[in-house]
Computed example of a mutant assay.
Amino acid sequence: MTAVVSHGSKPHEARITVEVPVLRVGAGPSDYEGLNRFVQSLRKPQGLHMTLLHIGILDDLGRDIAAWTKGLSPSEKTLPEIASWLTELPVLQGFLGKSDKLIPLGGGRLMGLEVDVPQEVHDYQALLVQGLHVLLDDLGLDNIDDFILSSPALGYRSPRWLPHIAVGKARTRHEPEMEIDPVAIEFGDSQIRNREALPLP
């Protein structure tokens, strides 16, 4: 699934994601810095990551669920269960991917590396989405696919997950896909971004 994620949130508005950190792009720093010629502003390599599942701001998700269930599943019930589910997820071990293409993201505001990843990464991401479906069903939601695609908190625009790493701001809103010299990408173990913002079970 593809989600639109904004950055610079206040601590109490922390966006929760399951993601893998980028440990290395190419053979060294110069391989990543070389992407600077394709974007207006290249992100710092220390913060690069690939999102596997976007949950969003928990308070907003709680309100979305309460509205969808017409108050039958209030936030005080759903948020601890969501937090418990997230913290019990299995960890995806680090892996290697590769990229030979830059693509527009976020309606053309960003550019990112489209990444070829091993099949086990696709399987893990599918497991996350299936688990989210089961969780939402347990929380009393119906028409779960419709909820996922319409929830402002979750922020999904497409049911298809495209492995990618946002690397910088696009030079214009109409940048095309661009072929680049192939680069290997090393990823670390999966983790929960802003885990400290989760409510205690």
Rank of each mutant, 00 (worst) to 15 (best):
H12R: 15
L61G: 03
A153M: 07
L72P: 07
P11S: 09
L141E: 02
P74T: 00
D116H: 09
P90H: 06
G107K: 05
E76P: 03
V183I: 09
E114S: 04
E175F: 09
E88W: 03
P199H: 01
S41G: 13
T51W: 04
V121I: 07
V115I: 06
A184D: 13
Y32C: 04
L110M: 10
K44A: 15
R63M: 11
H7S: 14
A27I: 03
N36H: 13
T78N: 06
I144K: 08
E114R: 07
Q93H: 10
K77C: 08
D31A: 14
Y156G: 01
W161H: 00
A153G: 08
S151Q: 06
L52P: 04
L53F: 05
M50W: 02
L149T: 08
L35E: 02
S75G: 08
L128Y: 00
L136F: 08
L154Y: 12
L110R: 04
K10M: 11
P21A: 09
T69R: 07
S151C: 03
Y32W: 01
D60W: 13
E177K: 11
N143A: 15
G56E: 07
K44R: 15
E13T: 05
L135I: 00
S151R: 06
D138V: 08
S6Q: 13
P176H: 01
G97T: 00
A67Y: 13
D64W: 06
L52Y: 02
V129G: 06
D31R: 13
G71Q: 09
R63F: 08
Y156I: 02
L102E: 04
V121N: 01
S9W: 13
F95T: 07
G56S: 06
I103F: 00
I16H: 03
R171N: 06
Q130K: 12
M178I: 12
F95G: 10
I180W: 05
P159M: 04
P90D: 09
P118M: 08
P152L: 05
A126E: 13
R109L: 11
E114W: 04
K70Q: 13
G62A: 02
H164L: 01
V129N: 10
V129Y: 12
I55V: 14
S99Y: 01
V115C: 00
V117S: 01
G131I: 04
K101W: 14
Y156W: 06
E196D: 14
P21D: 08
S30N: 14
M178S: 09
K10D: 10
V115H: 00
